[in-house]
């Protein structure tokens, strides 16, 4: 089994719950690109932690890299998580509200 078939198989497994089960060349390569983009841009973004501390940056990059490799494929999960159901949306909205308020209140008092 070559690598491409392996990827298609993983995507098919991950998409099993999805309504549109059709896995084509285009959707596979999009999924793959999205996956690589997500992980690489997250890793590059984490390098900015160097402004806080170099050690923290190295640890964070390594942890996220291993977590991402272990949790692959991320994208189908993310797609399922960020779906259009109202419950999910309100959940994330309230979560974001909590995060924003806590960060502003705690973060600004301690900067």
């Amino acid at each position: 089994m070559n690598l491409y078939d392996l990827i298609v198989k993983r995507i098919k497994e991950a998409q099993k719950a999805d309504s549109d089960g059709l896995v084509t060349n285009v959707s596979t390569s999009s999924m793959l690109t999205a996956e690589i983009t997500l992980i690489s841009s997250l890793l590059v973004a984490l390098i900015m932690l160097r402004l806080v501390s170099n050690v923290l940056m190295i640890v964070a990059v390594l942890v996220v890299l291993f977590a991402a490799i272990l949790a692959m494929p991320l994208m189908p999960r993310l797609k399922r998580e960020l779906n259009d159901s109202l419950f999910n949306m309100t959940f994330y909205v309230v979560l974001a509200l909590a995060i924003v308020i806590v960060l502003f209140y705690w973060g600004s008092l301690n900067v």
Binding site: M31, A34, T37, L38, S41, L42, A45, L78
Partner: peptide
């Protein structure tokens, strides 16, 4: 940026 563009790739 990251979420918007990666999610755009997956849309039909």
């Amino acid at each position: 940026m990251i979420l918007g563009i990666t999610m755009a790739l997956l849309q039909t």
